[in-house]
């Protein structure tokens, strides 16, 4: 899922400075699970903003809502009526949600309340780690189900580099060396021979490097 974290509250307050009445919109999907932008977080953030603005002698009215999802146009309807009454929306969905809000409610500013961080999962309660870089060209079948693009600091396809020590990456002892993990897993699977093969230069065209991406499925189009 998409992992995000809340922007610094100072930054949010700065964005909202010109407004007296806003909609604070959470999202019921990924950011609810990673506890950055769900219904609970909407409540806490709304209170914080109100308290801060009250203290500054410049109160703000905040309507709170949480959409089923902010990443699909049909769910935008859930915010339609509420948007009539406000000057702007602070979305605490991922960047997709913020953009869909902006696109749908074209005449009112949509502000991001989160930083969309990465694609990953909660490794333990309160600890989220990256797993996928959405490169558009999966190699997990070659690398023991561990992604070197997302998890190696250098995205090496023929790793590990010389900086791998005691299972950790050279950039930090808190970062696992993806290639150590790959080696261990392939060893456990009895597939170490995979690693003797040179993986050729990657076709990054399917990644962000090929420009904004788009998939058209004629079979699904109406």
């Amino acid at each position: 899922m998409i992992i995000a974290e809340q922007k610094p509250i100072e930054e949010i307050l700065e964005m909202l400075a010109p407004h007296k009445k806003i909609l604070l919109a959470g999202c019921g999907a990924c950011v609810t699970v990673c506890q950055a932008g769900g219904e609970k977080e909407v409540g806490v953030l709304a209170s914080q903003i109100r308290v801060a603005r009250q203290e500054a002698g410049n109160p703000i009215e905040i309507i709170e809502t949480t959409l089923t999802r902010q990443c699909e146009p049909e769910f935008m309807d859930e915010a339609k009526d509420l948007m009539n009454d406000v000057e702007a929306v602070l979305s605490i969905a991922c960047g997709i949600g913020v953009q869909l809000m902006a696109q749908t409610f074209y005449d009112k500013p949509a502000y991001p309340g989160l930083n969309t961080s990465f694609l990953g999962f909660p490794e333990e309660h309160g600890v989220f780690t990256e797993r996928c870089a959405a490169c558009g060209n999966c190699v997990l079948h070659l690398t023991g189900g561990i992604c070197p693009i997302a998890r190696c600091s250098k995205s090496l396809l023929n790793g590990p580099c010389g900086g791998s020590q005691d299972g950790k990456c050279e950039i930090s002892k808190d970062v696992d060396c993806a290639w150590q993990l790959i080696y261990d897993r392939l060893k456990a699977l009895g597939k170490l021979e995979n690693l003797a093969e040179i993986i050729p230069p990657k076709k990054w065209i399917t990644s962000r490097d090929g420009g904004p991406r788009k998939i058209v499925r004629e079979d699904l189009r109406i």
């Binding site: 806490v44 209170s47 308290v51």
Partner: peptide, 11 residues
């Protein structure tokens, strides 16, 4: 004692 309750009280 969730953050929501505590903040709401101040709010």
């Amino acid at each position: 004692a969730e953050t929501g309750y505590l903040m709401k009280a101040l709010d």
